[in-house]
Design a protein around this nucleic acid. Structure first.
Lengths: 205, 205
DNA sequence: CTGAAGGGTCAACAGTTGTAGAGTGATGTG
DNA sequence: CACATCACTCTACAACTGTTGACCCTTCAG
């Protein structure tokens, strides 16, 4: 009743498939279900049983594929956009790329859940925090800081990151009406000058 | 071994107190323990037993005082700063007040845990989300939007809120090094121009 | 002094959770 | 055809959870 049933269906169209293909499909079904649940309910409230039910299989199969719940989460939650691209961009391009990556990540339904699952849990789950903080934010900010240069480079890069983080939070997690309702043009019009001011050190004339 | 023991201590200095005073102290001990655990581990991973142990009492007593875990959380997690003050401020004062309130809330150890507990759980706990989004962010943003005026008022107010939210997240929850290490002066120097640009509609000359 | 009231403890229940192990039947290979 | 392999299911366990009701013992009012 929940979604794509794959398992013990007596005569479902998925039955009698080559082993490899069958394995791929179940794996994908599990991941899709897990991502959706992790993204909307969080790690703790998401049970192996619920994931299995949504994927139409037995809970024990989830364990067989991913070892344990932590392994399932690790396979489900990922940062889906190349966050290093912005690191090697020219100073002037950083604001545009930031917004571009934002939309590429969160407005594309096929990548969305993976990243949302990561962010939804980064305040209450250690390994999610580690990825968001160390692998994404810190790495990116270091590169951007080098591009910015000058005294406050690290802080400016950090605030650029936290500002984007706040935007993501407000628009996709908390769903603040005014932030959620804005179109891409609205966001660019209001936000680009802000990001530029953040990236450009004040004129030293 | 964990902290302030109050309960069945055979001859602790807290024993033999008037009822009312005794009740107040236990209540405070429970709340303090709950706040600390909710703030650092999150709602789900915080068990009634752990709260009781940290407060030095029996788990059942927690239930007697707060009904259930949800009630305990509601009593523990609160927004500790008058978020309406910034709503009735003049346009030019908004940036300063935003940073002032930020420090008043999060750099004062006596209020910290209450607010952190709220924020730590706002992505995975419904009632925390409701408070943060509806009671704090939306209310504040509506008032600020009226102060700003003009076409993009709501969006600008929303982005002001999400930017502050991102700063809070980066500094106190994720603890991004560059954002965490900055002094108040650093933050004001880099951030005030940003917030002013956000609040002031572009010159229509 | 006596009895009610209330702070506090103890032990236990019922439900849920992640997880393990044995077993089943179809798929593939010699 | 016979055997091994592998996807998959069933059943069960052990731990932990929030929560409850019966029970103490101190405090306080009459």
């Amino acid at each position: 009743m929940t979604s794509t049933s794959i398992g013990a269906g007596t005569d479902s169209p998925e039955a009698h498939l080559p082993r490899e293909e069958r394995r791929r499909r179940t794996e994908a079904a599990i991941l899709e279900a897990a991502r959706a649940l992790f993204a909307e309910s969080g790690f703790e409230k998401t049970t192996i049983r619920a994931v299995a039910a949504k994927a139409g299989i037995d809970p024990a199969l989830v364990m067989q594929y991913y070892g344990n719940k932590e392994g399932l989460f690790a396979a489900s939650a990922r940062w889906q956009v190349d966050h290093k691209r912005i690191g090697s961009a020219a100073l002037g391009d950083i604001p545009h790329i930031a917004i571009e990556d934002l939309f590429a990540t969160f407005e594309d339904p096929s990548h969305r859940d993976e990243t949302i699952a990561l962010l939804r849990n980064c305040l209450t789950h250690d390994s999610a925090l580690e990825i968001v903080r160390d692998e994404v934010m810190c790495e990116t900010q270091e590169m951007i800081a080098r591009t910015i240069g000058g005294d406050d480079a690290e802080l400016r890069a950090g605030l650029l990151g936290s500002t984007m983080m706040g935007l993501i939070l407000g628009r996709y997690l908390l769903e603040l009406p005014a932030v959620k309702a804005a179109s891409r043009e609205d966001l660019e019009r209001v936000l680009l000058p802000i990001l530029e001011a953040l990236v450009n050190p004040p004129a030293t004339s």
